[in-house]
């Protein structure tokens, strides 16, 4: 058990295995995402209430879902960094934070553009959009702190503390924003909550979520490999990998 754990933490082992998986992740991700998007855009039936603008859902929900799960993944990795000081965990946090930021921005952007035809305005202080905005701030803070600390090891540990503090706060933030929202404007129209969505709508949605998940996996692998190469370039195995063209 501990041996597996140790192996999982070895950058060399990760490098080998991720190189093998990466093409599949990319191909599967692009394929699923494209299938979901094309199905959603051209073949899914029109929403009886919102018309065709609802088709934004097929990228809004995947990005919003991924933005949140990436932060949870980062928090788990940060905990591993703090408890076991596993090298790969803090490589993951550092590599993935900018991806999370971009996904959060995309979720916000698509949500806000979707708001224009549905609410008649580009921005509304809706509970969900506001929580997303705060998540964007959290990602920004993580990246800023990481950039500000020169020493690699203390940067990784400081960022881990921040991410864990952030994840403890996320439910509190979510709860308080929901409460604040009901206080100021009773919810009139919900974007994604429908009592029942026909299969022609949720199947493409599921496909694009899965596709984006796989693409995120590929991105994480590529960026982690870059980070590992930069950190371990003095080791013999990296030298071998590079000179033999195995990278």
């Amino acid at each position: 058990m501990w041996q597996i754990f140790h192996k999982l933490g070895s950058p060399k082992w990760f490098f080998g295995i991720s190189t093998r998986f990466m093409p599949w992740l990319l191909a599967g991700g692009v394929l699923l995402l494209m299938a979901g998007v094309v199905w959603g855009l051209a073949f899914a039936p029109k929403d009886y209430l919102q018309g065709n603008s609802y088709r934004i859902i097929f990228i809004h929900v995947p990005t919003a879902f991924m933005a949140q799960s990436v932060y949870i993944m980062m928090a788990s990795a940060a905990l591993v960094t703090l408890v076991w000081r596993m090298k790969l965990a803090d490589v993951f946090v550092k590599a993935v934070a900018p991806v999370g930021l971009v996904l959060t921005f995309l979720a916000l952007f698509t949500g806000s553009v979707w708001g224009k035809p549905t609410w008649g305005t580009w921005w509304i202080w809706d509970a969900r959009l506001t929580s997303m905005l705060i998540l964007l701030f959290l990602y920004g803070g993580v990246i800023a702190l990481d950039r500000a600390i020169n020493d690699e090891k203390s940067a990784a540990r400081a960022v881990a503390v921040l991410v864990v503090v952030g994840v403890v706060n996320i439910p509190i933030i979510k709860y308080s924003v929901d409460w604040w929202n009901t206080l100021h404007q009773p919810a009139t129209f919900k974007l994604t909550e429908k009592p029942s969505m026909p299969a022609e709508m949720w199947v493409p949605l599921l496909l694009s979520v899965l596709g984006l998940y796989l693409i995120f996996g590929w991105l994480a692998c590529v960026r982690m490999q870059t980070e590992i190469l930069s950190r371990e370039q003095r080791t013999r195995w990296v030298k071998e990998f590079v000179l033999k063209g195995r990278v």
């Binding site: 701030f137 803070g141 800023a144 702190l145 503390v161 921040l162 503090v165 952030g166 706060n169 933030i173």
Partner: peptide
């Protein structure tokens, strides 16, 4: 504590902390 001894610690501190202050402000 996180930003101790960093350049431009003041601005960075605000960036890190303001999101965490939001629930207190709301309530």
């Amino acid at each position: 504590a996180l930003t101790l001894g960093l350049r431009s610690a003041g601005v960075l501190l605000s960036l890190l902390i303001i999101p965490l202050y939001i629930p207190v402000l709301i309530f």
